[in-house]
């Protein structure tokens, strides 16, 4: 069974008398341990796609099944729970809590799981060690470099052992050397069995991924899997 099933997903924004079709009929299945990249020009709907996948945003129309559960029917609190249990979101702008330390940031999602402080600390330390930041646990976000901040964000996404990791332009704010380090980390996570979906507009980044979906004007323009399917069949 597919981890993610999208059926004719649309997302429309009404801007006065004009309707922006950010997503316009998307059908995708994502399987466990996929390593997927969304690419496409600016405004093609990649971020919108990822926000819907991450249950941050709701589609205008269409069906979204995550782990067999229909997301459409859920209210805000249930969506929060899904985000907490199933999804690890990594933002382009890191989105760390500015007044919490690296450790505090990584512990935060566990607070919503009612896990005790001591255990939270252990789990967060493990996650920080995993991304190679165990020596920066008590730094505030503004005392960390961009690459370090992104590692904290990845640790925060990892700490809950989610079903999927979603990353929106994870290297967008980083230099090329740091970008490569982050992508190497993603490769390792994929090798460990994680499911990753990355939004990017750099071919360099997309090349790391096993499956690449190109978007254009809210539609799927090209899916490397279907191309592969077409070739094999």
């Amino acid at each position: 069974m597919a981890l993610i099933e999208l059926k004719s997903i649309t997302k429309y924004y009404e801007m006065g008398d004009q309707i922006v079709r950010a997503l316009d009929g998307i059908d995708i299945d994502v399987f466990r341990n996929d390593y997927l990249a969304f690419i496409g020009s600016s405004g093609s709907g990649k971020s919108t796609m990822l926000n819907i996948l991450g249950c941050l945003d709701k589609p205008t129309n269409g069906q979204y099944h995550l782990n067999g559960k229909n997301v459409e029917m859920m209210d805000q609190n249930e969506l929060s729970e899904v985000r907490n249990l199933e999804i690890g979101f990594i933002f382009q702008s890191f989105n760390l809590l500015p007044r919490s330390t690296a450790l505090g940031n990584v512990m935060q999602p566990l607070v919503y799981r009612n896990i005790r402080l001591k255990q939270r600390k252990e789990m967060a330390m493990d996650a920080l060690t995993r991304v190679g930041l165990d020596d920066r646990t008590h730094h505030l976000p503004n005392q960390l470099s961009g690459g370090q901040r992104q590692r904290v964000a990845i640790a925060r996404a990892l700490v809950t052992t989610p079903s999927i990791l979603l990353a929106d332009e994870p290297t967008g704010n980083l230099d090329s050397k740091t970008s490569i380090e982050i992508m190497q980390l993603f490769d390792e996570l994929h090798a460990e069995g994680h499911t990753l979906i990355v939004v990017t507009h750099e071919d360099e980044i997309a090349r790391h991924c096993k499956r690449v979906i190109e978007m254009k004007d809210g539609k799927i323009f090209n899916d490397s899997d279907t191309v592969l399917d077409a070739v094999t069949h």
Partner: peptide, 16 residues
């Protein structure tokens, strides 16, 4: 607002 958004994105419910 942004902090609240972050907390909600990583799983905070309304009562939190």
């Amino acid at each position: 607002t942004r902090e609240i958004g972050i907390c909600k994105a990583i799983g905070a419910k309304r009562h939190h």
